[in-house]
Design a binder for these strands. Structure first.
Lengths: 347, 347
DNA sequence: CATGTGCATGAAAGCGCTTACATGCCCTCA
DNA sequence: TGAGGGCATGTAAGCGCTTTCATGCACATG
């Protein structure tokens, strides 16, 4: 309360000045010890480190960011972490960031473009020096804003775009799957797609499937477009089956497919004997359904780490190389040739 | 390069000074417009806002943090986002944070205590003004460090602790499930547990189950302790079944249970006729296995939002009230009375 | 022995914002 | 009508760090 100025170090956090004083050096030297140790002679460095330890000093983040003009914070906006695809991708993304150098600020948009925009602005306002975004479907003004602010970004789960991205080809992926179903002899096919508005992944899959079908002179007997979820997938399947005589149902993702599969069980349909059901993504649940799900394998984790690598290059001011990862059909247990119409079901 | 100072606003970011100059007010007023608009007369505020818009101004994060001593950043360290339980909890946690006021810095520890500690320090170094941690099992020095730094924190998925927490009672939850299995008449029971070291959730479940069994004068015929994963659950099940004559397998979580279930299918065992399998958590996958999984429902999302609420109170300097959420058994399709030993399997 | 070179360190000027305190105006009330 | 009070705004002092430039020393060189 009165005389002892030295005590202030106990009541408030230690600063560079305290460390410098204790070590008998200048603040510049303390700063160098932290940011460029090789520029300080070992003897001095040791003194400084000892002082730091003794005072339990940690640099103030705001001051550091202000003076150095970097935060070491990277932002990511995903639709939702409840979708395993994004959770896994983000996890890989985070792990691929150099530890100690960057930290990850995450926000979710709930598939709402307006909210996504707010989240992007919030992350940048919080000092994000780079952004990871999902897909390329968004208002051009967002890109302009980002450009104006000079915030580097990478689009994950996106492809074929002129923007820096790490992704895969949804159309090609689904085409592989439709190809397999066609080969099996199916002609009465339906699709359960995710919501396509503002979602280029879902749209790419739906359109890719339509195109592949068209190449064989066919078109879908029915298409349902529903929000992400097991329950929505299940209900869509019920409706589709009730109104169309289909032998195969292509699903836009594994969760929808899992829902469809459950609905099939509950309706007493045998899979794959009575109906073929396929997924997309090959997340964990694909291998615990019964039968195990035939789906399209997408390297989500690899994509996450590639996105991290790319973003770092961009942040470092280098020319980043976008990557397009391959997908492939994983043939498990939910596909089979269509039941021949002229035979009894039990044949 | 030479005379036109006004141009600097084009080459660099606008600052409060630029805004103040354009609006014809002082920087203090600009700051007030942003942080306490009600303290500025509407007419002035409008002028300032117009200037802000015109200059496309965004406050500098570092400067703001330095001057105001707050960052609006909250940190969370989870073992991994690949575990749906944490992904969902974090998602709820994030959504419960007042939008615009806080942003979420996320790091994952991969269940490694050392790495967790580093991540905690990294988040605090990045300015986190509050932390969400998983469970209470960690080196006491971590808590000391946090206390010394005056960083408020909340422990999620933890319970019964003196620390601020939002969680549920693992022992009580598993006891409910074991109770159900005992009621069905099982006496030859095994358990597949998650790794218990440094993981109080897994340990609580294992010990809670043991205790409940002991109350009935029984003990496990076999216990496997394996890392989180479908595959590990499957292999543990195979081993357990091969070496012990059990009729029920209690699993420490749904993923392990899903693995066990798949292994059972592959071994030709019928569930639940030949063997009862139970899970814990009630994540999405519990309702897409076949049969659907009998498990213990845990309100992970609710827990995430309660944790957010609690942490905010703590950050505001209030006395936070910990919460303990209830769990309950969800009886679906993977439980049944044991097959009577004296009857043929096909009875 | 004078000069040049390189390196470790110090001095001090900001970085862009917030905020305590000061100022001046307008309105109220006796 | 004048003192007092309240309110909107301005002034300016930091917040704690990084970084440029200057300094001085040790050593090599002619």
């Amino acid at each position: 309360m009165n005389e002892d100025a030295g005590l202030s170090e106990r009541t408030t956090h230690a600063t560079v000045d305290d460390v410098a004083a204790l070590a008998g050096v200048s603040t510049a030297t303390v700063s160098r010890c932290l940011n460029a140790p090789e520029r300080v002679i070992p003897a001095t460095r040791e003194k400084v480190m000892a002082a730091i330890r003794k005072l339990n000093y940690t640099p103030n983040f705001g001051a550091r960011a202000l003076a150095s003009r970097k935060t070491g914070i990277i932002g990511a906006v995903v639709p939702t972490l409840e979708n395993a695809v994004f959770a896994h991708g983000i996890e890989a993304f985070e792990q691929a960031l150099p530890p100690g150098k960057f930290a990850l600020l995450i926000a979710s948009s709930g598939y709402d473009p307006q909210r996504e925009r707010e989240q992007i602005e919030a992350l940048v306002a919080r000092g994000a020096s780079g952004l990871m975004l999902v897909g390329f479907d968004r208002d051009p003004t967002v890109y302009e804003w980002l450009g104006h602010r000079r915030v580097p970004y990478v689009l994950a789960w996106a492809s074929g775009d002129s923007q820096p991205h790490a992704g895969f080809d949804n159309e090609a992926g689904i085409a592989q799957m439709v190809g397999l179903v066609l080969e099996l002899g199916h002609t009465d096919i339906a699709m359960i797609s995710g919501m396509t508005e503002g979602n280029d992944r879902a749209r790419g899959r739906l359109e890719g499937a339509r195109r592949e079908l068209a190449r064989a002179g066919l078109e879908f007997r029915g298409v349902a477009e529903v929000p992400y979820g097991i329950e929505t997938g299940a209900r869509a399947f019920e409706k589709l089956i009730a109104s169309h005589p289909v032998t195969a149902v292509i699903c836009g993702n594994d969760v929808l497919a899992a829902g469809a599969l459950r609905a099939a069980h509950r309706m007493g349909l045998r899979v794959p004997e009575d109906v073929t059901i396929t997924g997309f993504d090959d997340i964990d649940i694909a291998s615990i359904t019964y039968p195990e799900l035939t789906t399209v394998r997408v390297p989500h984790r690899r994509m996450g780490s590639e996105a991290a690598r790319l973003l770092q290059q961009l942040i470092d001011g280098k020319e980043g190389q976008s990557v397009q990862l391959p997908t492939r059909v994983v043939a498990r247990g939910t596909h089979a040739p269509p039941r021949r119409k002229d035979l009894p079901a039990s044949a």
